[in-house]
Write a protein that binds this DNA or RNA. Structure first.
Length: 601
RNA sequence: GCUCCCUUAGCUCAGCGGAUAGAGCAGUUGCCUUCUAAGCAACCGGUCGUUGGUUCGAAUCCAACAGGGAGCGCCA
């Protein structure tokens, strides 16, 4: 068997739906029998591109036409003649230029649905092998406000971490906080002026709006030369580890930490704090090791590694600077130290990760390519380990330009979330008044919070992460159409049926799929496992969003057009089962996106 | 100047080498006496930036060009 074909087959075994697997094997057997081919040839089976083509399609005949010197439809027909799939599907059809279409028998679909009803993983296998993975995401800067730009890293990173955990990997979620650097000199100097007693630790202070504090310090720094000098002295003192400076630094970090944590709690995002300062002591060693590996070059006073295959303006190789002319280290050094620590074995004080994922904006791809290359050349990346930058597009304003912190027009994450919840609340209250429903304040608050946060998360995750993102308040907070509330609503409808009918668990009665709405819902439900594995392959959460939206659409149609509780006796158990599996699938899928479900809304 | 990304319906975007390119929003029109209408059904809407190439088959892969964005030695 050829290498490509074997790889394809291996992939199928690992990742494809059980039925697809079975069919793929029968198909390959039939091909081997039907066609005079020297070696086994790839003849892949893929999900049908449209419902009218059935469940699966095989397109291999067209590619073989030239090799065999026969018309593709004839080839397809010979393969079909050798196929034995009666137990799984209707007789395969040759269509168009030479497609073979497969339609699974309703009884087979029904049996699959029944089986999945009792599986907490809904058919998704555990990964093999399971790996220790670090996901590095969120990473805001101390003394700065989290804004919409941080949302993408936080939400996408959290989603990827949830997915990999669900697949069985051991995931360490690290928050690479910007908690070190020259800006602290300025902040500490400013603290001296504003709250001198806090420095000695004799007084607890609340700095209130840290962002305003940062801005004041910055303004003063830009205007006042004496203050600049003071700031520089503070940097030196901090780096020398003077207790007073360290105390001030801790105070600033603590204040920021509280503000960040409030957001993470609200977003239900778990992170282990591991700021840049964590790597301070390892920095000299990074440079030393690079020296030993003979990678280090001193250029214009700076110590750097010249990169292979990356050139600058003058066509000369670009350097990655790891120690500045003044002896200070920079973020590249920190990133290298982090890579070493994460990939090192636990015995050596490392994390023992085999895969490290960085969720940052696409603008940093050059930087990561450089850092990864240097780590590789320094021999810090053991065989089988993988460093991966998972980039996302920029958040742009309506003008198509990057939303920048300093432009002043940035939207604070806190405000965005507040606004989202306010809108959800307003919408809910209005709706309840219209429908003359009574609701407790607790209910309203809880629904508004869940719906608002869900809308924000879904708006971000449903977009392909690699493309730039035109930020729009109204679009992000919309409650109609392809939005989180739409998916939540489908779920709520099912819970309504459960409440009304007592339970979704029907008396033991065979599932029998008849109505087209039942069949298409069953088909959609059964493809969940494939979608999850697809999403893992590319780390694209929008694939899962698209699936869940499609599933919800199919469910809403089913709900709209067929009665469940008032269905005829022979249909009710089937419809209840479909409702149950729909609810489970939506709940699990939304859970992987980091979105909570509610029972009423 | 160099490198990377993007260009698909009026708007915002999906689209994994396969058949007649899909959603949502906006617009037009129907549907609540029935499990929640945050819904359903229907209509309208396309030179997939341009030109070549590879392929049985290209929105998808390759090249060039045009337009937009980002990055490019001591910030992160």
């Amino acid at each position: 068997m050829g290498g490509a074909a074997r790889w394809e087959l291996h992939l199928c075994w690992r990742t494809m739906l059980k039925l697809r697997n079975a069919l793929q094997h029968r198909l390959l057997e039939a091909v081997a029998q039907a066609l005079p081919l020297p070696a086994a040839v790839d003849f892949p089976l893929e999900p049908a591109t449209k419902p009218e083509f059935g469940d699966f399609q095989a397109n291999g005949a067209m590619g073989l036409a030239k090799v065999l010197g026969r018309p593709p439809r004839q080839i397809a027909q010979v393969v079909v003649d050798h196929l034995q799939v009666d137990d799984l599907c209707h007789p395969p059809q040759v269509a168009g230029p030479g497609f073979i279409n497969f339609t699974i028998r309703p009884e087979v679909l029904a049996a699959e649905v029944e089986e999945r009803l009792d599986q907490p993983r809904l058919g998704v296998p555990m990964a093999q092998p399971q790996q220790p993975v670090v996901v590095d995401f969120s990473s805001p800067n101390i003394a700065k406000e989290m804004h919409v730009g941080h949302l993408r890293s936080t939400i996408i990173g959290d989603c990827i971490a949830r997915l990999l955990s669900f697949r069985g990997h051991r995931v360490l979620r690290l928050n690479h906080l910007g908690d070190w650097g020259t800006q602290f000199g300025m902040l500490i100097a400013h603290l001296h002026h504003v709250a001198p007693r806090s420095l000695s630790g004799r007084e607890q202070v609340d700095l209130g709006d840290l962002v305003a504090f940062y801005r004041q310090a910055k303004t003063r720094f830009d205007e006042d030369e004496a203050f600049q000098e003071h700031s520089r002295r503070e940097v030196v003192k901090l780096q020398a580890g003077e207790p007073e400076s360290l105390g001030a630094w801790r105070l600033l970090c603590q204040q920021s930490r509280q503000a960040f944590q409030a957001i993470y709690d609200r977003l239900d995002v778990q992170l282990v704090e591991r700021g840049e300062s964590f790597y301070n002591e390892a920095l000299p060693q990074v440079v030393e090791e690079l020296e030993k590996a003979r990678l280090l070059v001193v250029d214009d006073g700076a110590r750097c590694v010249f990169l292979q295959g990356m050139t600058g303006k003058d066509g000369q190789p670009l350097p990655l600077i790891v120690q500045k002319r003044d002896g200070g280290y920079n973020y590249a050094t920190t990133d290298l130290a982090a890579i070493r620590q994460r990939l090192a074995s636990p015995d050596a004080g490392g994390e023992g990760a085999e895969r490290v994922i960085y969720v940052t904006d696409a603008g940093q791809s050059n930087h990561f390519a450089a850092v990864f290359q240097v780590a590789q050349r320094a021999g810090w990346v053991p065989t089988g380990c993988r460093l991966q930058h998972v980039p996302f597009g920029l958040v742009q304003g309506a003008d198509g330009k990057k939303l920048k912190t300093r432009s002043g027009a940035t939207i604070r994450l806190r405000d965005l979330l507040d606004e989202a919840v306010d809108r959800a609340r307003h919408d809910l209250v209005e709706r309840m008044a219209q429908e003359q429903r009574q609701g407790e304040e607790d209910f309203i608050a809880q629904v508004a919070e869940t719906v608002g946060i869900a809308a924000v998360k879904y708006a971000d995750l449903s977009q392909n992460r690699t493309t730039n993102y035109q930020f729009s308040f109204d679009r992000m907070l919309a409650l109609q159409g392809n939005t989180a509330p739409y998916l939540l609503y489908a779920y709520v409808r099912i819970q309504g049926i459960a409440r009304q009918g007592g339970s979704l668990v029907a008396a033991a009665s065979p599932i029998c799929l008849q109505a087209p709405q039942e069949l298409s819902l069953a088909r959609q439900l059964l493809s969940f496992d494939e979608v999850i594995l697809e999403m893992e392959q590319d780390l694209l959460p929008n694939r899962l969003c698209a699936y869940l939206f499609g599933l919800s659409q199919t469910f809403n149609r089913f709900y709209d057009q067929l009665p469940v509780l008032k269905a005829p006796d022979q249909s009710r158990p089937t419809r209840l089962a479909l409702c149950r599996l729909s609810a489970e699938t939506i709940r699990l899928g939304l859970g992987l996106l980091g979105i909570k479900t509610i029972d009423r809304m």
